[in-house]
Amino acid sequence: MPTIQTIDINAWYGTKQALKNISLEIEEHSITAFIGPSGCGKSTFIRIFNRMNDYIEGFKMEGQVLIDRQDINAKEVRVEELRQRVGIVFQKPNPFPKSIFENVAYGLRIQGINDKKVLSEVVEKSLMRAALWDEVKDDLNHPALSLSGGQQQRLCIARTLAVEPKIILMDEPASALDPISTSKIEDLATELKENYTIIIVTHNMQQAARISDKTAFFYMGEMIEYDKTTDLFTNPRHERTENYITGRFG
């Protein structure tokens, strides 16, 4: 049964159409990669799943996004609850200018949970799941901004995990990182797949091929092809997809 389903998504920035008639289904506990050249709409699309576009001026959207069969744009849906279920990790690591501990605890604190014991447990568990615990366990009170870029990004993942989401959106999570940090993030994504549904936007096609189960190729706001990753990369059905993955453009 698909966890996520989109039906005929169209979106605009002002008068410029950014997404055209996109319908797809995403299975539970899988990694889905969105690839395509810059400006193709993949980042706009991933941000639809937790309504991060709401604050962008001039953004307009039509169509339905169903998560566990519920329309997330329905009036009765509280966007704050939605974002606790659908977490997001951004391209540039953006920890809060607070301590490592407070970064991970933030999601709980804003829900009104301030019990020190509960927070400590969640912080430890989340940092472990994000494969960061061993590196920072003695420095939990240090500022998060003193960590390296790769560590900051894993901290951002830990922060997202702390509120127990079901779905994690990753918008080019490794594009600002060095190869070693990148491979750590990739390993992490593969591990997290056991318990979470992951959608990842990436410019790096090897990355998509390495870690994702399914891949969607976007071009000029359209979803050209959506298939099992192995099929899409070895046997693309569309010429555009083939040209892109073989590096002939983009």
């Binding site: 974002r83 951004f90 604190r109 829900q111 997202t160």
Partner: peptide
Amino acid sequence: VPSSLREASFGMGATKWQTIWHQVLPA
């Protein structure tokens, strides 16, 4: 205050006021 900080807070499920109070104003 960089918008990435706001987005990070909203992305965690914070309301607008929580984001302003906990992130924007201190920064």
